[in-house]
Simulated scan of single mutants.
Amino acid sequence: MTRYRVAVIGCGKVGALYEREAGRPKPASHAGAAVRDPRTELVALADTSPTALARAKKLFPRARAYSSASECLQTERPDIAVIATPVSARLSLVRLCLRYGVRAIICEKPLASSAVEAAKITRAVERSDAAFVLNYPRRFAPLFSRVRRAITSGALGAVQQVTCYYSNGLYNNGGHAIDSLLYLLGEDMKVRWAAVNKRAAHPPGDPCMDATLETKKGARVMLQSVDQKAYGIFDIRLFGTKGERSFIDYGTTLIEAAPRRSFFKEVRQLDRARARVHTSPEGNVLAETLKALAKKERPNGAKQGFTVLRTLDAIRHAAKKK
């Protein structure tokens, strides 16, 4: 069995330190996933923060530690590089990985600090032989694939309306909703209205925003943020002409409801009492990357990330007009 060498660049929470949290399902970080998968070997950790690097090294003592990403890539020559740094460093690190011949790059979301930078990353990846997988994991999840098939096959009918609920920042978590919709609906969306939700908590510089979007086929999409101080949320409800599909529990539970006769002779209603419920974990970005390497495929998740950022930028621009 081929074992791929993995280097994690950026040893913050998602890169490595979520493994310290007892309540989180494991693996809880990119480094943890690389250690647990028998097809991969975590060979290196890199971070410019001595504190973060020391904490990550304590969790993963077998991996070599580097304060320089360039030195790490040059010395280790990993097959897979995970970029889990702050967003401002993404462009330079992608270029660095490509320069040192990394075969596959796993990049945290959002792809870049702007659609302009995202376009530069997309072009750099297109000119390379590397596979590029962006960590929006729901597009790798079985439940989301199931609903996508229901839409493309016509089993759900024409999509009439979609509502997405998210918390904790438009770019931080709203991007998950936009990427999920791009995957499920298979088409771009135009922003019709947007406004800042001033009552919702958010990361510094990334306020929550509500928006109305519309697909080319005429489906209306509502993006609604809530205050994470009360509770976190990631739910999607899709209404087609042949039924409803609802994702709850951060997308790990799917509820399928079909219409039936109602008390009103000429009106049907959704039979939620007999709805089917399915559960499945989130998609696995490392497994998706390994599958691409095994099949010698070259996915360009940067192109996907550019589309997400372009949509998020359009929402922010529309909100500024309010």
Rank of each mutant, 00 (worst) to 15 (best):
R5F: 00
L223T: 02
R245A: 15
A141T: 01
A141K: 08
V8H: 02
M222P: 04
R20A: 14
L111T: 00
P299C: 09
R146C: 10
R123C: 08
S262C: 01
H30A: 14
R310F: 08
V133H: 09
C11D: 09
R5S: 14
A219C: 11
A257H: 06
L182I: 07
E187Y: 09
S128Y: 00
S280Y: 06
I255E: 10
A177F: 00
L312R: 06
R103Y: 05
A63T: 01
T48V: 15
A292I: 03
R95N: 14
S153V: 00
E117G: 02
M189C: 10
S113N: 07
H278Y: 15
M189G: 06
S246C: 12
A44T: 11
T252Y: 05
E266N: 13
A141L: 03
V191S: 03
V226D: 09
F132E: 01
E187K: 11
L143Y: 07
L91Y: 08
E117F: 00
T152E: 15
L96V: 12
E244S: 13
G12L: 06
A115W: 05
F60I: 00
T152D: 12
P27Q: 09
A119E: 14
A104T: 09
A124T: 02
L223Y: 04
S67N: 06
V43R: 14
F144A: 02
A273G: 09
M189I: 01
R274I: 05
A294H: 11
